[in-house]
C-alpha cells in the first residue's frame, strides 16, 4: 500500500463528503421512545427466548449489506461508473463503526438488539440509501400487513420467512 493510486486521493474527497451526519432522525427517535422492546414483551407474554424473533433476520440483513464475500470500497468507483445501487453497499467495518458511534450517541439506553436495528436504519437513512419518508411509509404498509385480520396474508407467510419466524422462533 505504499504506492497510492492518485485516483484514490480524489475519492478521499468524495468519502469526506459522505462522512456520516449523525444528527437524530425524528422517526427513529419516536420508535426509540414508543417502541416496545423484546425485554418488555417477552416478560409480559412469558416467552423464554432471550432474543426477539427478528434478530437473526437483522443480522442477516447486515451480512447481506456487507456484500457477497467482502465489500470492496465501492465509493472508489467514480459515481458515473457505479453499475447499480448495489455498488453502494455499506462496507462491513464502516457500518460496524457507525453502529458503535450511533449507539453511543443516540441509542445507549435502548437494549440490544433493538439498538443495533436503530443504528442500522440510521446509517442507511444518513447514507441516502433510503429516505426517512420512504422508511416511514414502508413501516406503515408493513404494519398494516402484519396487523391484518387472520388468513389474509397466508400466502405471503410461505414466501416470507420474516413472518414465518414470528411464529417459529
Amino acid at each position: 500500500m505504499t504506492d497510492v493510486n492518485p485516483d484514490y486521493l480524489e475519492l478521499d474527497k468524495e468519502m469526506n463528503e459522505r462522512a456520516l451526519d449523525s444528527s437524530p432522525i425524528e422517526l427513529l427517535e419516536r420508535i426509540k421512545i414508543e417502541g416496545r422492546v423484546w425485554e418488555e414483551l417477552s416478560e409480559e407474554y412469558g416467552v423464554n427466548n432471550p432474543d426477539p424473533p427478528w434478530r437473526v433476520s437483522l443480522e442477516s440483513t447486515c451480512d447481506q449489506l456487507a456484500g457477497g464475500y467482502w465489500a470492496p470500497f465501492n465509493v472508489c468507483l467514480p459515481k458515473e461508473e457505479r453499475e447499480s445501487p448495489s455498488d453502494d453497499k455499506v462496507d462491513a467495518i464502516e457500518r460496524r463503526w457507525e453502529e458503535d458511534d450511533l449507539v453511543a450517541k443516540h441509542y445507549a439506553d435502548v437494549p440490544f438488539p433493538e439498538r443495533q436495528l436503530l443504528a442500522l436504519a440510521h446509517t442507511l437513512v444518513r447514507r441516502g440509501i433510503m429516505t426517512e419518508q420512504e422508511l416511514a411509509a414502508k413501516m406503515k404498509s408493513v404494519s398494516d400487513r402484519l396487523n391484518m385480520v387472520d388468513g389474509a396474508y397466508e400466502d405471503e407467510e410461505l414466501s416470507n420467512p420474516g413472518l414465518a419466524n414470528k411464529q417459529g422462533a
Binding site: G35, L117, L120, I129, M130, K138, M139, N147
Partner: peptide, 18 residues
C-alpha cells in the same frame, strides 16, 4: 408474543426497502 412491536415492523421495513 401476540403483539407486533414497532421494532419488528422497522426490521421488516428496512429489509424490504433494501
Amino acid at each position: 408474543v401476540d403483539e407486533v412491536s414497532e421494532f419488528e415492523v422497522l426490521e421488516l421495513a428496512v429489509r424490504e426497502l433494501a
